[in-house]
Amino acid sequence: MAELMYWEAIRRAHDEEMTNDPLVICMGEDIGVAGGTYKATNGLYDKYGPERVIDTPISENGYTGLGIGASFLGVRPIIEIMSVNFAWLAMDQLFNSAAKVRYMSGGQLTAPVVVRSAGGTAHQLGAQHSARMEKVFMSIAGLRVVTPSNPRQAYGLLKSAVRCNDPVYINEHELMYNMKGEVPDEEYFHPLVGSEVAREGRDVTLFGYNISVHWCLQAAETLSKQYGIEAEVIDLFALAPLDRAGIVASVRKTHRAVIAEEAEPAVGVGAEVMAIINEECFFELDAAPVRVSAVNVPIPYNHTLEKAAIPNAGDVVAAVRKMLGK
C-alpha cells in the first residue's frame, strides 16, 4: 500500500475515472493549465485535453449549472469549486436543479454530478475564506454529502461519487491536502453511506468528520494515556444521509457521546447527531451528549482570535473529562 497525500489521492481518482470513462470530465477555475489550486487536477489537462479538463470562467452558478446540464445527457462532470465560500454562489443550481430534478421529473432525469470544494478554516484566511458549510449542504433532500478525513477516503469517495447516479457534494479541507496516508494500490471504491470506527473504545464515543476526526483521535490518545478513559472514535464520512444505525450502535455501547465539529453549533452536524441519539437511545445514556463546536463569529484574521474561535483536541479532552468527572 502506497502512502499518498490527500491531493494526490484525489488526483489519482480523477485520473483513473477519466481513463475508465471518456464521458468523465472535470471543470473549475484554474484546474486545467494551472493544475488546480490544490493540485488535485495537476497534469490532467495535458493528458486529457481542454475538452475534458475545462478551465471555467469565474461563474460558479453558471458552470455548476452547465455541468448539471451535461450530466442530464450522460456526461459525468467533476466540478471543483475553488473554495466553499464561493460555493454559496452555486447553491441555486446545485440545490434547485441538481438535487431536485430526479424528484420533480418523477424519476425521468438525474444529475450525476460531483461537486468538490475546499472548506474549513486554515491560516488566517479571514471571514470570507473560512466558511464551514457542510451543514447547509447536508440539509438538502436529493443531494449526497461526503467528507473525507484521510487520503484513502478522499480517493475512494471520489471514485464512487463519480459512478453514483445521484449528485454528490464532497467537502474537502483547506488544511488537509498535504496530509499523508495509505491508499490501496488496487482500485478502491469507498461507500458513500455509513461511518467508520476509527478507534475502538468503551467509555465514551467521540464523533468527528473530516478534520475533527483527527482532533478526536488525538484526544482519545490523551484520554487513554493520562486519564485511563477509552474513547471510541466514529468517523462520519457520510453527512447525508447520516449513518443513524452506526451512531446508535456506538452510543449503545459507550452510553456517552461528544461530537466535535469545526463549524458553528447552530443547525449543524452536532445538533443532528444529538437529535438522533435523543430519538433512538435516550434512556441508554449515562450523560447528556455534548457538542464541541466553533464560536459563532465571522472568522477573525488575528491568529489568536482565530484559534480561540475554532475547537481543537484539547477542547475534546476537556469535554470528556467534564462529562466523566475526571
Binding site: I68, G69, F72, L73
Partner: peptide, 23 residues
C-alpha cells in the same frame, strides 16, 4: 423540463449542448 427559478435553464441548456458536442 420546466424549471421554476427564473434563469435556471440558461446554464442547463449550455451544459446539454456541451454533452452533445463531446459526443
Amino acid at each position: 423540463g420546466g424549471y421554476a427559478l427564473v434563469g435556471g435553464p440558461f446554464p442547463l441548456a449550455a451544459g446539454m449542448a456541451k454533452a452533445i458536442k463531446m459526443k
